[in-house]
Structures are given as structure tokens and as C-alpha cells.
Simulated assay, not measured.
Amino acid sequence: MNKLAKNVLFGLLIASPILYVSACSYISRSRQMAFDAVAEGDTQEAVARKLISGYVIEKAGGKAFLRYASRACTAPCVERWWIENRMAFDTEAWSVEFGNDGRVLRKVEWSSP
């Protein structure tokens, strides 16, 4: 292996953890800001605009999103939206629950130390 290849490999070895931590922090911060912008009583349309994309939808009567929750969305919740930071080493997710009227009933942060 020539000297240039060794230097490039060494640079990648040093940069990879820094890039990973930076990306994880960026995702966490941006999703936390979007979650914080959601208020109880917001409509699904308003929440969708704030969250942009990347959420998982759990319907009432269906299976719980067991990656984070131990119980499924049940009345008065008719739909729960999950936002995740899959790059986090531990649990980091946010959920927003909607009622029959399509408005936010409750929002929860899910994290593990």
C-alpha cells in the first residue's frame, strides 16, 4: 500500500466517528425541534408539515410499535405517528397521538440513557 492510500485510510478512520456523531446529533436536533413545534390540538396536516417526512404510522387496533412502546395506540388515540433517530445508539424517538377529530391528543419523547 502506498503512502497516499495509507494517509487516505487513516483520514477516513479518524473522520468516520466524527461524521457519525455529527450526523446523529444533527438528526436528533432537527427532529427534536420539529417535535417541539407540534402542539396539542394541532391538525394532522399541520403536524405533517412540521415533521416533514420519515415518520411511521401506527393505527389503533393494530400492533404496537414495539421498538419503543409496550402498548398499542388505544382509544381515545386512533393514530400514532413515530419519529425516530435510528442512528442513536440507544432509544431516541418521539410519538404524536391523534384522536377521532384528527387533532393531537398527546405527544411523548422516548429515550434511554
Score class of each variant (00 low, 15 high):
Val21Met: 12
Arg31Leu: 04
Ser25Asp: 09
Met33Gly: 13
Cys77Glu: 05
Leu13His: 05
Gln32Tyr: 07
Tyr20Glu: 04
Arg31Pro: 01
Gly54Pro: 07
Thr91Cys: 09
Val108Asp: 09
Gly41Met: 10
Gly99Glu: 11
Tyr20Val: 05
Asp101Phe: 07
Asn100Pro: 15
Ala39Met: 15
Gly54Arg: 09
Gly61Cys: 05
Ile27Gln: 09
Ser53His: 05
Phe10Val: 14
Phe89Met: 09
Ala37Leu: 05
Val8Gln: 03
Ala23Val: 02
Phe35Tyr: 14
Cys77Asn: 08
Asn7Met: 13
Glu79Phe: 02
Met1Ser: 11
Phe89Asn: 13
Arg80Cys: 03
Gly61Met: 06
Gly61Asn: 10
Val38Pro: 09
Arg80Thr: 02
Gly102Asn: 13
Ser111Cys: 04
Asn100Arg: 05
Val21Leu: 15
Phe10Asp: 08
Asn7Phe: 10
Ile27Asp: 01
Arg86Pro: 12
Ala23Thr: 07
Asn85Leu: 00
Ala48Arg: 10
Ser16Pro: 06
Ala60Glu: 13
Arg31Gln: 07
Arg31Lys: 14
Lys3Tyr: 11
Ser95Arg: 04
Val96Ile: 15
Glu109Cys: 08
Arg49Asn: 05
Ser111Pro: 03
Ser25Tyr: 07
Ala5Ile: 12
Cys73Ser: 12
Ala34Cys: 05
Ser70Gly: 08
Thr91Asn: 08
Ser70His: 15
Ala34Ile: 02
Ala48Val: 04
Ala93Lys: 04
Ile57Phe: 01
Arg106Ala: 15
Gly102Ile: 02
Arg103Thr: 13
Glu109Met: 13
Val56Glu: 13
Pro76Ile: 05
Ser25His: 06
Arg29Lys: 14
Ala34Glu: 04
Ser22Ala: 15
Glu45Thr: 11
Trp82Tyr: 15
Val8Ser: 10
Met33Ala: 05
Val38Ile: 15
Cys73Lys: 08
Ala69Ile: 11
Glu92Cys: 02
Phe10Pro: 01
Tyr55Leu: 04
Ala37Met: 05
Ser16Lys: 11
Tyr68Cys: 12
Met87Trp: 09
Leu19Met: 14
Glu79Gln: 08
Gly102Glu: 14
Ala46Asn: 09
Ala5Pro: 07
Gly62Glu: 15
Phe89Glu: 12
Arg106Phe: 13
Ala46Cys: 01
Phe35His: 10
Ala88Arg: 12
Asn7Ala: 08
Ala46Gly: 01
Leu12Tyr: 03
Tyr26Pro: 03
Phe65Thr: 13
Leu13Gln: 08
Phe10Asn: 12
Leu19His: 06
Met87Cys: 10
Phe10Cys: 15
Thr43Glu: 00
Trp82Ile: 03
Trp81Gln: 01
Ser28Leu: 08
Leu12Gly: 15
Leu19Val: 14
Tyr55Thr: 09
Ser70Thr: 14
Arg49Pro: 02
Tyr68Phe: 14
Ser111His: 06
Leu66Ile: 11
Arg80Ala: 00
Ala72Asn: 12
Asn2Tyr: 15
Arg106Pro: 11
Arg29Leu: 07
Glu109Gly: 13
Asn7Thr: 10
Ala39Gly: 12
Phe89Gly: 04
Ala69His: 11
Asn7Pro: 01
Val104Glu: 00
Pro76Asp: 00
Gly41Trp: 02
Gly54Thr: 10
